[in-house]
């Protein structure tokens, strides 16, 4: 058992050292080939497979004692799954955690990228349910791998086109596909389109982990990331105009839409709870 001040029955960061090393090797390969899905021997973790085990395996493999971890789900540090993942990471590492983006060295997230600009000494780990942008084109892995190899993405373009023809505008919600470094088309994980531009030419390293599907991929700092769109139907983010956070007054951020059953009120608040809280603390 390696040094672990919290739980004597388990190794530091839960996984055995050999597994962590193997996962780090897959991460290095992913960084070397931006947007390419690196298959890896995904390990089972004590949280649900499909609940963020890909992201968590990355986090547990890269984390050291000096790191400060932030875990969010849907933008919130307090969401049930974020709490559960953070608890496991702390129980098996004893590291410090934070809700503030600027204090974190590693940020694990499901469905959101924080509002604050990430720095080059921070790593953003995203949990991925469906890593394969071609899965809608073919259910078969053997086929989609070949299509990637040949950069044959017409099926994805066709899907965007069909949406426009049928509904008059693009219909993708979250997880809008992106082209990375002009080569691989990649699912950015189900982040809102609002967050897609944050992947482009960023200062931080983005790592994506799909535990159930056993894939790791990456967007290294300062990489071109272009959301797929036609020239005459340009890519657009969700409409946030005219919306104001009820709690901190922020505008131009991604919002949660809240219906208060007591007052029958309908309002908006920051999806990024750490960001919102920080603003409120600064005001006070």
């Amino acid at each position: 058992m390696a040094d672990n001040n919290k739980n004597p029955h388990y190794n530091f960061a839960f996984l055995d050292e050999g597994s962590k090393r193997e996962i780090r090797r897959s991460i290095l390969k992913a960084v070397a080939i931006p947007g390419y899905q690196v298959p890896f021997g995904s390990r089972e973790l004590p949280i649900g497979r499909g609940w963020g085990t890909g992201g968590l395996q990355i986090t547990l493999s890269i984390i050291g004692k000096a790191d400060v971890l932030k875990v969010i789900d849907q933008g919130s540090d307090d969401s049930v799954n974020a709490v559960s993942i953070r608890k496991l990471a702390v129980a098996t590492t004893g590291i410090e955690t934070t809700a503030y983006t600027n204090e974190a060295t590693v940020i694990q997230s499901r469905h959101r990228i924080p509002e604050e600009k990430l720095r080059n000494d921070q790593i953003m780990v995203l949990q991925v349910p469906n890593p394969e942008p071609l899965r809608y084109v073919t259910p078969k892995e053997a086929v989609s791998r070949k299509l990637h190899a040949e950069a044959e993405y017409s099926g994805i373009w066709l899907r965007l086109y069909e949406g426009i023809v049928k509904y008059g505008h693009t219909v993708t919600g979250a997880d809008h596909p992106v082209s990375v470094s002009g080569r691989y088309v990649m699912n950015p994980s189900p982040i809102p389109r609002f967050d897609n531009p944050k992947l482009h030419n960023s200062d931080c390293l983005y790592l994506f982990g799909a535990g159930r599907e056993k894939k790791i991929y990456a967007v290294p700092p300062h990489t071109d990331v272009v959301s797929l769109a036609y020239d005459d139907y340009p890519f657009s983010i969700e409409n946030v105009k005219g919306r104001v956070c009820k709690l901190c007054g922020a505008t131009g951020v991604f919002f949660d839409e809240i219906f208060d059953s007591d007052t029958n009120e309908h309002f908006f608040q920051c999806s990024d709870s750490g960001f919102c809280e920080k603003r409120r603390r600064e005001v006070n």
Partner: peptide
């Protein structure tokens, strides 16, 4: 695991869809 993950909150993705 994947079936039960449907019980997790999905309000960000749903908001994106609503948009």
């Amino acid at each position: 695991g994947f079936l039960s993950h449907l019980k997790l909150p999905h309000y960000v993705t749903f908001q994106s869809r609503l948009d």
